[in-house]
Write a protein that binds this DNA or RNA. Structure first.
Lengths: 155, 155
DNA sequence: TCCAATAATGAGAATCATTATCAATAAGGG
DNA sequence: CCCTTATTGATAATGATTCTCATTATTGGA
Protein backbone atom coordinates (compact mmCIF):
# COMPACT_ATOMS: atom_id res chain seq x y z
CA UNK A 1 0.00 0.00 0.00
CA UNK A 2 1.27 3.45 -0.88
CA UNK A 3 0.63 6.52 1.21
CA UNK A 4 -2.14 7.69 -1.01
CA UNK A 5 -2.85 10.33 1.60
CA UNK A 6 0.06 12.53 0.67
CA UNK A 7 -0.74 12.60 -3.03
CA UNK A 8 -3.48 15.26 -2.87
CA UNK A 9 -1.32 17.41 -0.63
CA UNK A 10 1.66 17.14 -2.91
CA UNK A 11 -0.45 17.94 -5.95
CA UNK A 12 -1.94 21.03 -4.37
CA UNK A 13 1.47 22.11 -3.12
CA UNK A 14 2.50 22.39 -6.78
CA UNK A 15 -0.67 24.13 -7.87
CA UNK A 16 -1.97 20.95 -9.47
CA UNK A 17 -5.43 19.51 -9.02
CA UNK A 18 -6.77 16.34 -7.51
CA UNK A 19 -9.05 14.79 -10.11
CA UNK A 20 -11.16 11.63 -10.20
CA UNK A 21 -9.02 10.41 -13.07
CA UNK A 22 -5.76 10.77 -11.17
CA UNK A 23 -7.15 9.06 -8.11
CA UNK A 24 -8.56 6.20 -10.15
CA UNK A 25 -5.37 5.62 -12.11
CA UNK A 26 -3.24 5.65 -8.98
CA UNK A 27 -5.52 3.08 -7.34
CA UNK A 28 -5.24 0.81 -10.34
CA UNK A 29 -1.46 1.01 -10.43
CA UNK A 30 -1.23 0.50 -6.70
CA UNK A 31 -3.39 -2.62 -6.84
CA UNK A 32 -1.78 -4.11 -9.96
CA UNK A 33 1.97 -3.82 -10.34
CA UNK A 34 3.60 -4.15 -13.77
CA UNK A 35 0.59 -3.24 -15.91
CA UNK A 36 1.30 -1.38 -19.14
CA UNK A 37 -0.47 1.79 -20.29
CA UNK A 38 -3.01 -0.07 -22.35
CA UNK A 39 -3.91 -2.44 -19.53
CA UNK A 40 -4.25 0.46 -17.13
CA UNK A 41 -6.47 2.20 -19.67
CA UNK A 42 -8.70 -0.86 -19.99
CA UNK A 43 -9.14 -1.22 -16.27
CA UNK A 44 -9.81 2.48 -15.88
CA UNK A 45 -12.55 2.35 -18.50
CA UNK A 46 -14.17 -0.43 -16.52
CA UNK A 47 -14.78 2.17 -13.82
CA UNK A 48 -15.02 5.34 -15.88
CA UNK A 49 -15.84 4.61 -19.54
CA UNK A 50 -15.31 8.23 -20.52
CA UNK A 51 -11.64 8.37 -19.57
CA UNK A 52 -9.26 9.01 -22.45
CA UNK A 53 -6.00 7.31 -23.31
CA UNK A 54 -4.22 10.66 -23.36
CA UNK A 55 -5.16 11.15 -19.74
CA UNK A 56 -3.63 7.82 -18.87
CA UNK A 57 -0.31 8.74 -20.47
CA UNK A 58 -0.36 12.26 -19.05
CA UNK A 59 -1.02 10.94 -15.58
CA UNK A 60 1.65 8.27 -15.83
CA UNK A 61 4.18 10.92 -16.76
CA UNK A 62 3.03 13.16 -13.94
CA UNK A 63 3.21 10.42 -11.32
CA UNK A 64 6.63 9.44 -12.56
CA UNK A 65 8.04 12.95 -12.30
CA UNK A 66 6.51 13.15 -8.82
CA UNK A 67 8.47 10.01 -7.94
CA UNK A 68 5.25 8.21 -7.05
CA UNK A 69 5.59 5.49 -9.68
CA UNK A 70 8.37 3.97 -11.77
CA UNK A 71 8.27 2.85 -15.38
CA UNK A 72 10.01 -0.36 -16.35
CA UNK A 73 11.25 -1.70 -19.64
CA UNK A 74 10.44 -5.40 -19.42
CA UNK A 75 11.87 -6.20 -22.81
CA UNK A 76 8.79 -5.25 -24.80
CA UNK A 77 8.13 -2.21 -26.97
CA UNK A 78 6.15 -0.45 -24.28
CA UNK A 79 6.60 0.40 -20.60
CA UNK A 80 5.13 -1.14 -17.49
CA UNK A 81 4.36 0.77 -14.31
CA UNK A 82 4.50 0.17 -10.57
CA UNK A 83 4.43 2.13 -7.35
CA UNK A 84 7.87 3.35 -6.39
CA UNK A 85 9.48 1.06 -3.87
CA UNK A 86 12.87 0.15 -2.51
CA UNK A 87 15.54 -0.96 -4.95
CA UNK A 88 14.64 -4.37 -6.28
CA UNK A 89 15.38 -6.68 -9.15
CA UNK A 90 12.76 -7.73 -11.69
CA UNK A 91 13.01 -11.37 -12.67
CA UNK A 92 11.17 -11.42 -15.99
CA UNK A 93 10.12 -14.62 -17.71
CA UNK A 94 10.43 -14.17 -21.45
CA UNK A 95 7.97 -17.02 -22.05
CA UNK A 96 4.96 -16.26 -19.90
CA UNK A 97 5.72 -12.66 -19.00
CA UNK A 98 5.66 -13.27 -15.27
CA UNK A 99 7.51 -10.67 -13.24
CA UNK A 100 8.98 -11.48 -9.85
CA UNK A 101 10.13 -8.69 -7.54
CA UNK A 102 13.16 -9.51 -5.42
CA UNK A 103 15.19 -7.30 -3.11
CA UNK A 104 18.39 -6.13 -4.78
CA UNK A 105 21.47 -8.07 -3.64
CA UNK A 106 23.51 -4.88 -3.40
CA UNK A 107 23.04 -1.20 -2.61
CA UNK A 108 22.77 0.70 -5.91
CA UNK A 109 23.19 4.13 -4.26
CA UNK A 110 26.44 3.18 -2.58
CA UNK A 111 27.62 1.37 -5.68
CA UNK A 112 27.05 4.44 -7.81
CA UNK A 113 28.45 6.84 -5.26
CA UNK A 114 31.74 4.98 -5.28
CA UNK A 115 31.98 5.81 -9.01
CA UNK A 116 31.01 9.44 -8.56
CA UNK A 117 27.37 8.96 -9.55
CA UNK A 118 24.45 10.21 -7.53
CA UNK A 119 21.89 7.53 -8.36
CA UNK A 120 18.35 8.75 -8.96
CA UNK A 121 16.74 5.72 -10.51
CA UNK A 122 17.49 2.01 -10.72
CA UNK A 123 16.52 -0.39 -13.45
CA UNK A 124 17.53 -3.94 -12.66
CA UNK A 125 16.03 -6.55 -14.96
CA UNK A 126 17.09 -10.16 -15.27
CA UNK A 127 15.33 -11.77 -18.20
CA UNK A 128 15.14 -15.52 -18.48
CA UNK A 129 12.81 -18.48 -18.23
CA UNK A 130 10.99 -19.41 -15.07
CA UNK A 131 10.73 -22.91 -13.63
CA UNK A 132 7.23 -23.53 -14.93
CA UNK A 133 7.95 -22.51 -18.50
CA UNK A 134 11.17 -24.49 -18.51
CA UNK A 135 9.24 -27.56 -17.39
CA UNK A 136 6.58 -26.98 -20.02
CA UNK A 137 9.04 -26.60 -22.86
CA UNK A 138 10.82 -29.76 -21.77
CA UNK A 139 7.54 -31.61 -22.16
CA UNK A 140 6.61 -30.09 -25.52
CA UNK A 141 9.95 -30.36 -27.29
CA UNK A 142 12.00 -33.36 -28.25
CA UNK A 143 14.39 -33.94 -25.37
CA UNK A 144 17.34 -34.80 -27.66
CA UNK A 145 18.07 -31.30 -28.87
CA UNK A 146 20.35 -30.19 -26.08
CA UNK A 147 20.67 -26.46 -25.56
CA UNK A 148 23.54 -25.07 -27.59
CA UNK A 149 24.42 -21.38 -27.34
CA UNK A 150 21.84 -19.13 -28.85
CA UNK A 151 19.42 -21.98 -29.36
CA UNK A 152 16.94 -20.74 -26.77
CA UNK A 153 13.26 -20.74 -27.64
CA UNK A 154 11.97 -17.51 -29.11
CA UNK A 155 8.16 -17.53 -29.30
CA UNK B 1 37.63 -6.68 -29.52
CA UNK B 2 35.03 -9.30 -30.37
CA UNK B 3 35.84 -12.52 -32.14
CA UNK B 4 34.70 -11.21 -35.48
CA UNK B 5 36.15 -14.36 -37.00
CA UNK B 6 33.33 -16.60 -35.91
CA UNK B 7 30.59 -14.37 -37.26
CA UNK B 8 30.86 -15.47 -40.91
CA UNK B 9 31.01 -19.08 -39.85
CA UNK B 10 28.00 -18.79 -37.64
CA UNK B 11 26.04 -17.01 -40.35
CA UNK B 12 26.80 -19.63 -42.95
CA UNK B 13 26.03 -22.40 -40.48
CA UNK B 14 22.49 -21.05 -40.39
CA UNK B 15 22.21 -20.63 -44.13
CA UNK B 16 22.61 -16.88 -43.80
CA UNK B 17 24.93 -14.75 -45.86
CA UNK B 18 27.93 -12.62 -45.03
CA UNK B 19 27.29 -9.21 -46.56
CA UNK B 20 29.29 -6.00 -46.68
CA UNK B 21 26.49 -4.32 -44.76
CA UNK B 22 26.60 -6.81 -41.89
CA UNK B 23 30.36 -6.64 -41.63
CA UNK B 24 30.33 -2.85 -41.65
CA UNK B 25 27.61 -2.54 -39.04
CA UNK B 26 29.31 -5.01 -36.73
CA UNK B 27 32.58 -3.08 -37.01
CA UNK B 28 30.85 0.14 -36.09
CA UNK B 29 29.14 -1.36 -33.06
CA UNK B 30 32.33 -3.04 -31.96
CA UNK B 31 34.26 0.21 -32.13
CA UNK B 32 31.58 2.42 -30.55
CA UNK B 33 29.62 1.02 -27.65
CA UNK B 34 26.22 2.50 -26.71
CA UNK B 35 25.35 4.05 -30.07
CA UNK B 36 21.67 4.09 -31.02
CA UNK B 37 20.25 2.93 -34.35
CA UNK B 38 20.30 6.39 -35.86
CA UNK B 39 23.90 7.02 -34.87
CA UNK B 40 24.94 3.66 -36.26
CA UNK B 41 23.09 4.51 -39.47
CA UNK B 42 24.91 7.83 -39.77
CA UNK B 43 28.34 6.28 -39.31
CA UNK B 44 27.51 3.51 -41.74
CA UNK B 45 26.53 6.03 -44.40
CA UNK B 46 29.89 7.67 -43.95
CA UNK B 47 31.40 4.49 -45.35
CA UNK B 48 28.58 3.26 -47.58
CA UNK B 49 26.19 6.08 -48.50
CA UNK B 50 23.79 3.65 -50.16
CA UNK B 51 22.98 1.68 -47.01
CA UNK B 52 19.36 1.83 -45.87
CA UNK B 53 17.96 2.39 -42.40
CA UNK B 54 15.91 -0.79 -42.68
CA UNK B 55 19.10 -2.76 -43.11
CA UNK B 56 20.45 -1.26 -39.93
CA UNK B 57 17.40 -2.30 -37.92
CA UNK B 58 17.27 -5.73 -39.57
CA UNK B 59 20.92 -6.35 -38.82
CA UNK B 60 20.63 -5.15 -35.24
CA UNK B 61 17.81 -7.62 -34.69
CA UNK B 62 19.78 -10.40 -36.33
CA UNK B 63 22.90 -9.78 -34.29
CA UNK B 64 20.83 -9.64 -31.14
CA UNK B 65 19.16 -12.99 -31.76
CA UNK B 66 22.60 -14.40 -32.53
CA UNK B 67 23.70 -13.18 -29.10
CA UNK B 68 26.43 -11.10 -30.67
CA UNK B 69 25.14 -7.76 -29.43
CA UNK B 70 22.84 -6.52 -26.67
CA UNK B 71 20.31 -3.72 -26.79
CA UNK B 72 20.02 -1.40 -23.83
CA UNK B 73 17.29 0.90 -22.66
CA UNK B 74 19.19 3.91 -21.36
CA UNK B 75 16.08 5.79 -20.34
CA UNK B 76 15.33 7.28 -23.73
CA UNK B 77 12.65 6.36 -26.25
CA UNK B 78 15.04 4.32 -28.36
CA UNK B 79 17.59 1.56 -27.79
CA UNK B 80 21.36 1.60 -27.67
CA UNK B 81 23.59 -1.25 -28.77
CA UNK B 82 26.86 -2.83 -27.69
CA UNK B 83 28.81 -6.04 -28.22
CA UNK B 84 27.72 -8.74 -25.82
CA UNK B 85 30.03 -8.90 -22.84
CA UNK B 86 30.10 -10.17 -19.30
CA UNK B 87 27.40 -9.03 -16.94
CA UNK B 88 27.93 -5.39 -16.11
CA UNK B 89 26.12 -2.39 -14.78
CA UNK B 90 25.49 0.73 -16.84
CA UNK B 91 25.93 3.92 -14.88
CA UNK B 92 23.98 6.41 -16.96
CA UNK B 93 24.20 10.15 -16.44
CA UNK B 94 20.81 11.69 -17.08
CA UNK B 95 22.41 15.10 -17.71
CA UNK B 96 25.18 14.49 -20.25
CA UNK B 97 24.22 10.99 -21.36
CA UNK B 98 27.57 9.49 -20.43
CA UNK B 99 27.50 5.74 -19.91
CA UNK B 100 30.00 4.01 -17.66
CA UNK B 101 30.38 0.23 -17.78
CA UNK B 102 31.19 -1.39 -14.46
CA UNK B 103 31.42 -5.06 -13.54
CA UNK B 104 28.27 -6.27 -11.80
CA UNK B 105 28.67 -6.55 -8.03
CA UNK B 106 26.83 -9.89 -7.98
CA UNK B 107 26.31 -12.92 -10.19
CA UNK B 108 22.97 -12.51 -12.00
CA UNK B 109 22.87 -16.15 -13.17
CA UNK B 110 23.27 -17.53 -9.68
CA UNK B 111 20.89 -14.94 -8.30
CA UNK B 112 18.20 -15.95 -10.78
CA UNK B 113 18.85 -19.65 -10.45
CA UNK B 114 18.15 -19.44 -6.75
CA UNK B 115 14.65 -18.19 -7.63
CA UNK B 116 14.07 -20.81 -10.29
CA UNK B 117 14.95 -18.57 -13.24
CA UNK B 118 17.37 -19.49 -15.96
CA UNK B 119 18.74 -16.05 -16.80
CA UNK B 120 19.30 -15.34 -20.48
CA UNK B 121 19.80 -11.61 -20.47
CA UNK B 122 20.69 -8.97 -17.91
CA UNK B 123 19.72 -5.32 -17.92
CA UNK B 124 21.28 -3.41 -15.07
CA UNK B 125 20.97 0.35 -15.33
CA UNK B 126 21.63 2.86 -12.61
CA UNK B 127 20.55 6.31 -13.72
CA UNK B 128 21.82 9.38 -11.94
CA UNK B 129 24.08 12.37 -12.25
CA UNK B 130 27.82 12.07 -12.71
CA UNK B 131 30.44 14.06 -10.82
CA UNK B 132 31.05 16.51 -13.64
CA UNK B 133 27.43 17.39 -14.20
CA UNK B 134 26.82 17.71 -10.50
CA UNK B 135 29.71 20.14 -10.26
CA UNK B 136 28.46 22.11 -13.27
CA UNK B 137 24.94 22.43 -11.93
CA UNK B 138 26.31 23.62 -8.60
CA UNK B 139 28.07 26.41 -10.44
CA UNK B 140 25.14 27.43 -12.62
CA UNK B 141 22.41 27.44 -10.01
CA UNK B 142 21.93 29.62 -7.01
CA UNK B 143 23.54 27.74 -4.15
CA UNK B 144 20.87 28.72 -1.62
CA UNK B 145 18.13 26.44 -2.87
CA UNK B 146 19.01 23.34 -0.90
CA UNK B 147 17.83 20.04 -2.33
CA UNK B 148 14.43 19.07 -0.98
CA UNK B 149 12.91 15.75 -1.94
CA UNK B 150 12.02 15.51 -5.58
CA UNK B 151 13.55 18.88 -6.31
CA UNK B 152 16.41 17.52 -8.38
CA UNK B 153 17.27 19.20 -11.68
CA UNK B 154 15.15 18.01 -14.59
CA UNK B 155 16.34 19.56 -17.82
C1' DT C 1 -23.39 28.03 -2.32
C1' DC C 2 -22.23 30.46 -6.55
C1' DC C 3 -18.41 32.34 -9.68
C1' DA C 4 -14.47 33.15 -12.09
C1' DA C 5 -9.98 31.61 -13.33
C1' DT C 6 -7.58 28.11 -15.26
C1' DA C 7 -5.75 23.30 -14.79
C1' DA C 8 -7.19 18.98 -16.69
C1' DT C 9 -9.74 16.17 -19.76
C1' DG C 10 -11.21 13.73 -24.20
C1' DA C 11 -10.84 13.11 -29.03
C1' DG C 12 -8.09 12.89 -32.51
C1' DA C 13 -4.04 14.45 -35.12
C1' DA C 14 0.94 14.30 -35.04
C1' DT C 15 5.56 12.14 -33.87
C1' DC C 16 8.98 8.97 -33.60
C1' DA C 17 11.13 4.52 -33.40
C1' DT C 18 10.74 0.24 -35.33
C1' DT C 19 8.83 -3.27 -38.57
C1' DA C 20 6.77 -5.01 -42.86
C1' DT C 21 6.44 -5.05 -48.01
C1' DC C 22 8.32 -5.81 -52.40
C1' DA C 23 10.95 -5.25 -56.54
C1' DA C 24 15.92 -5.11 -57.51
C1' DT C 25 20.48 -6.87 -56.19
C1' DA C 26 24.17 -9.78 -54.89
C1' DA C 27 26.13 -13.94 -52.01
C1' DG C 28 27.57 -18.62 -52.80
C1' DG C 29 27.28 -23.26 -54.44
C1' DG C 30 27.64 -25.85 -58.69
C1' DC D 1 29.72 -17.98 -65.22
C1' DC D 2 24.90 -19.06 -63.86
C1' DC D 3 21.11 -19.99 -60.91
C1' DT D 4 18.81 -19.87 -56.63
C1' DT D 5 17.32 -17.17 -53.14
C1' DA D 6 18.81 -14.46 -49.03
C1' DT D 7 19.43 -9.59 -48.55
C1' DT D 8 19.03 -4.94 -49.63
C1' DG D 9 16.96 -0.15 -50.27
C1' DA D 10 12.98 2.66 -50.56
C1' DT D 11 8.94 3.41 -48.63
C1' DA D 12 4.56 2.35 -46.53
C1' DA D 13 2.68 0.67 -42.27
C1' DT D 14 2.46 -0.02 -37.38
C1' DG D 15 2.32 0.93 -32.56
C1' DA D 16 3.42 3.49 -28.56
C1' DT D 17 3.54 7.96 -26.84
C1' DT D 18 2.92 12.99 -27.16
C1' DC D 19 0.67 17.19 -28.71
C1' DT D 20 -3.36 20.34 -29.85
C1' DC D 21 -7.38 22.51 -28.66
C1' DA D 22 -12.11 23.10 -27.55
C1' DT D 23 -14.77 21.60 -23.52
C1' DT D 24 -15.18 20.40 -18.66
C1' DA D 25 -14.43 20.46 -13.85
C1' DT D 26 -11.52 21.70 -9.62
C1' DT D 27 -10.43 25.21 -6.44
C1' DG D 28 -10.11 29.52 -4.01
C1' DG D 29 -12.76 33.35 -2.98
C1' DA D 30 -17.19 36.30 -2.80
Amino acid sequence: MADRVSMPERLRAEGKRVTRERELLLEIIDANPHLDASEIYDRARGVNPRIGLATVYRTLRLLETMDVIDSNDLGEDHSHYEMRQDDHVHLVCSECGAVLDVAAPFDPRAFGRRRGFEIRQTRLELVGVCDDCRAKSRGEHRPDLGSGPGAGPRP
